[in-house]
Design a protein around this nucleic acid. Structure first.
Length: 271
DNA sequence: AAAAGCCCCTGGATGC
DNA sequence: TGCATCCAGGGGCTTT
């Protein structure tokens, strides 16, 4: 669920409400992917200056430090003044003067990590190798082409790896490649400049559109206000194995690439 | 050094 | 109804 659009939609849904608040208490449930990295009292009385995002990481900027929050596969955040009592899958509560930010994550692939600064080794280990932000100016067709030209892995897997461009997960990789008319199995370095330019546009279009639609709610994603996303209703390829392509009616194919499902139209997406 | 696999964990859907 | 199997939106780490 949580790819760039879901993370961004989540961020937008609570950044305004939490900014300026002070941390009153912290509660942790079962262990997440990594330990918090500091004592709980390190956070007390700190002010939340804002909430940023880098790829699929949320960056909760405090007056003295940063909380990196990753939603993993099944994580979602809630923010509110009167949240119910913690349930089995609520593993982190940041209680602030404006309300409580709560991470719910059944599979616990998510993480909340405190670092003193974004430049610290601990933060760089997580953020250092990340590619460019697809919705910012740094993501240009030419630079994209040059990066893709260096890799002979299948384009779908290059997108997923996040080292060239961040935020494109399993759903949006399939969707962007569909929009661009590119077969997911094609080696990245075999894409022509015009096709890379198309893919560049398709990635931006699909991610921006998904943010507008509130993300994709496949199982249980919701933003920090508890609202679902609706982009999944517009999916052209993802999750549509065997169903007719919405453009040409040929049955959508599902294959496996690196243990993940890939969906594509064998007719619209050329090798 | 790039690329391919292996896991972490829980719950829901499917099949017998 | 019960139990086993498979699958899932991510990504760091280990192995080739």
């Amino acid at each position: 669920m949580p790819e760039l659009p879901e993370v961004e939609v989540t961020r937008l849904s609570f950044v305004g409400a939490i900014s300026g608040a002070r941390v009153l208490a912290v509660r942790m449930g079962k262990p997440l992917r990594w330990p918090l990295g500091c004592r709980l009292d390190r956070l007390f009385n700190q002010q939340v200056l804002g909430v940023g995002r880098r790829g699929k990481y949320l960056l909760v900027e405090l007056s003295d430090g940063v909380l990196l929050i990753h939603l993993g596969m099944s994580g979602s955040l809630r923010f509110g003044q009167e949240l119910p009592e913690s349930g089995t899958h609520d593993h982190f509560d940041l209680v602030t003067s404006a309300g409580t930010l709560r991470l719910n994550d059944p599979r616990r692939f998510g993480a909340v990590v405190f670092v003193n600064k974004i430049g610290d080794p601990q933060a760089q280990k997580l953020l250092g190798k990340l590619g460019v932000e697809p919705l910012l100016d740094g993501f240009s067709p030419l630079a994209f082409y040059e990066q893709l030209h260096l890799r002979k892995t299948a384009i779908k897997q290059v997108l997923l790896a996040g080292e060239v461009v961040v935020g494109v997960g399993n759903i949006y990789a399939s969707e962007a490649l569909f929009l661009a008319g590119i077969r997911p199995t094609l080696a990245a370095n075999r894409l022509s400049r015009p096709r890379v330019a198309r893919l560049h546009g398709a990635i931006r279009e699909v991610l921006a559109r998904a943010v507008e639609r509130g993300g994709s709610t496949l199982r249980d994603f919701s933003n920090a206000d508890g609202q679902s996303g609706y982009f999944q209703l517009e999916a052209m390829a993802y999750g549509r194995a065997g169903l007719p392509c919405k453009k040409c009616a040929a049955p959508i194919k599902m294959i496996r690439q690196g243990q993940r499902a890939t969906f594509y139209c064998p007719k619209c997406q050329k090798p």
